[in-house]
Amino acid sequence: MSTAEPSLAAASVDQPAKPRWMLAGLLTGPALYILIMAIVPAFLMVQLSLAHREVGGLWSPGFELTQYRQLATPLFARIMGFSLLLALTGAVICVSLAFPAAYFITRMRRRAQVAWLVFLLGSLSLSEVLIVFAFQVLLSTSGTLAGALAAVGLLAPGGALYPNFPAVLTCLVYLLLPYVILFFYPALSQLDPEVEQAATTMGASRLSTFTRVVLPMMRGQILTGVLLVVIFTFGAYLTPLVLGRPPQWTIAIHINNAAMGAGNLPLAAAYAVAVVVFMVALLVLTRLLSRRREAAA
């Protein structure tokens, strides 16, 4: 937030300057880790995407755009389009549920807040595999939910609630919700209660205080929350594989299919490079838009 800048600047002025060698020493470890674990594999991935595909799942070094030409097809556009649709829908639902939830948790008594945080952190300890297969059971013909809906006539007898798009979306939202609530919690708990009270004394109802003051003040955090969910959902693998049909498969499944099924590693690498480029473009675009909004304000 813009208001935080002066205090941050002031804090940096007040702090005693650390020796440069100490800063360099502290940064060396993380820098090396990023270099080895992120930049090197990314470089190898680009190299592999340009390589020549050999029979039997092999490849030889080269510089050809054969695999990238396959990206310019309606099929790839449909896969990317669906992945983006799933990611954006999931992000909107997740943030719409998580932001008010985090807001209400921060307005609870301290003890209740701690109980909620423990519950949310506890839910993260469940394995994704376990959750996805639990959803499969829940939504299957013999599952509790499908049975209950069939009993009240909302579902044909013997019908199942999966595989389909809502099943994939529901499970992804369930998986991501605790993360997003925990992401919003620190920022919302630091929100000055006097700001909301000021709005109240000026005649704002609780709803208009929330929509006109709290939400706009947290715009930056909300945008970051949306991006986090988009990035995570775009790469979702297990959930769409188990709870979706092939039309609901994300790009991650297609990358795996290209690499492991068709034995075309260069194509899988080209898909991956395209996803990275797309994500970086999305981040840059978001940053530009938010900067333009800040400048306009």
Binding site: M1, T3, V195, A198, T201
Partner: peptide
């Protein structure tokens, strides 16, 4: 009566200005 109904003007210790508005 709710605070929103009283509409007494109040200046808070932290001033509580809205940073997202000019």
């Amino acid at each position: 009566q709710a605070a929103s109904g009283r509409q007494f003007g109040m200046v808070f210790q932290s001033l509580a200005l809205f940073p997202h508005l000019n």
